[in-house]
Amino acid sequence: MGASTAVISADALDLTFQTADGPVHALSNVSLDIQSGEFVSFIGPSGCGKTTFLRCVAGLEHPTGGALSVNGMTPDEARRNRAYGYVFQAAGLYPWRTIGGNIRLPLEIMGYSKSDQEDRVKNVLELVDLKGFEKKYPWQLSGGMQQRASIARALAFDADILLMDEPFGALDEIVRDHLNEQLLALWSRTEKTIGFVTHSIPEAVYLSTKIVVMSPRPGRIHEVIESPLPKERPLDIRDTPEFIEVAHQVRDGLRAGHIDE
């Protein structure tokens, strides 16, 4: 894996937050390459720096050491070039805008024409299976539907990279399974590169081509697991021995990461 083909490339990344209680070492020596079209999950206990790493990639936090490039640019340049869509833990839809209006928000800011906006809103609503909800307000939708709308918002301007920070963390198991399945379908249709932060081992194994197991204090990468699972993944793949084997590996990695503390 040459760094030249990597969409996201981190080399010896370090980040220390200065807080009132003294410095917090959020990321330590994090090196990772993510290739185009990969689905990479970050898993680990709280405080392991998985969200912080994603925010560094997005240019929302700035590393205090090491090098990080996104699409061959600095994260800030990539942000200014609108290289990625970001999905937060909460849907964060504007209550005064309809679903369509919320998806139009980035398009308005980025200066797309009115007719282009309409087309894109229609397309992404279909992509996340929310056709016909364009004129509804967020409060008229369930939590799962709101999160799908926020994914549609991140997809609307067709960035190649999709960064997702525990997007389904607040949803119940059944809705989460359904959205995971849809997300995989969406990923295979759009061939985007996805960075996905999660707490859930089954979710990480089911979705990812690569699973980054992290450990806390200081936040660092404990292990990177390449998934042997095929790209085509029906929900019942979770009962196959291969799936269970990968899940084991992740669990062992998480446990070992805790023990080295």
């Binding site: 997005a58 240019g59 929302l60 942000r79 869509g85 970001y86 937060f88 964060g92 980035p106 800011i109």
Partner: peptide, 16 residues
């Protein structure tokens, strides 16, 4: 903070 971060990911200006 999340809503402000969202607009930063769009590289929105202060006036936007």
């Amino acid at each position: 903070a999340m809503q402000l971060d969202l607009l930063r990911t769009y590289n929105a200006s202060k006036s936007e």
